[in-house]
């Protein structure tokens, strides 16, 4: 049995360190926050202008002026700070954010990332994703190993438009954890009860173990 989505998030949470400033993408990456041990202090950035994101509000705490980058209502913490969008992306662009965890449509073995558009379908926009992957010190992709139709998502070369070139450091899928160093993909961990043969079968990219 490979990793479940919860186990993938749990594994991703192990990459966080005490004192880190972290930006989590919309969707599955958001769930990583649930697996941070109480002993660890991590500050979450929301690129619409906040450091120190709190949990979702109680019904009577909802505030229209307080939302996350996914436009959901959130709360503040004693350590929260607000700032404008230019300041927010200045700290992202210059690498003051330690880690970003985000989803992907495709990742290439050299770290190219595609996660913002599928030609022919309605284009919604890249939001802050291009800025985050270009600027944040370390980028972890959290994604299913294969697309819904079974096609591989870890490729020799992305065929969808890129979000960033050579930007991904680590990929966590249901089958394992991969690292990318010097344009080379390494399989660092296999998920439980997953064979190397299965990973090879379901991966287009070349990787070394």
């Amino acid at each position: 049995m490979a990793w479940t989505r919860d186990q993938m998030c749990e594994r991703a949470a192990l990459e966080l360190e005490d004192g880190f400033y972290v930006n989590l993408g919309i969707g599955m990456p958001t769930l990583v926050a649930n697996y941070i041990p109480d002993s660890m202090s991590v500050t979450f950035q929301s690129e619409n202008g906040m450091l120190g994101m709190g949990e979702f509000p109680l019904d009577n705490e909802v505030d229209a002026d307080l939302i996350n980058a996914g436009k959901q209502t959130i709360t503040e913490l004693p350590e929260s700070v607000y700032f404008d969008s230019a300041t927010s992306f200045a700290m992202i662009r210059d690498g003051h954010i330690d880690l970003s965890i985000l989803g992907a449509l495709q990742v290439a073995e050299n770290g190219d990332l595609a996660n913002w558009m599928i030609p022919g379908k309605m284009v919604k926009g890249m939001g802050g994703a291009m800025d985050l992957v270009a600027g944040v010190r370390r980028v972890i992709v959290l994604m299913d190993h294969n697309a819904k139709d079974g096609s591989p998502k870890l490729l020799k070369k992305c065929n969808l438009p890129l979000t960033g070139a050579g930007v991904v450091d680590t990929v966590i899928t249901d089958l394992g954890l991969f690292e990318i160093k010097n344009d080379q993909l390494y399989l660092s961990e296999l998920a439980p009860d997953t064979s190397l043969e299965e990973v090879r079968e379901r991966t287009e990219a070349e990787f070394v173990q």
Partner: peptide, 8 residues
Amino acid sequence: NPQGTLAE
């Protein structure tokens, strides 16, 4: 425009 590029 990427969001940070638009802001900048």
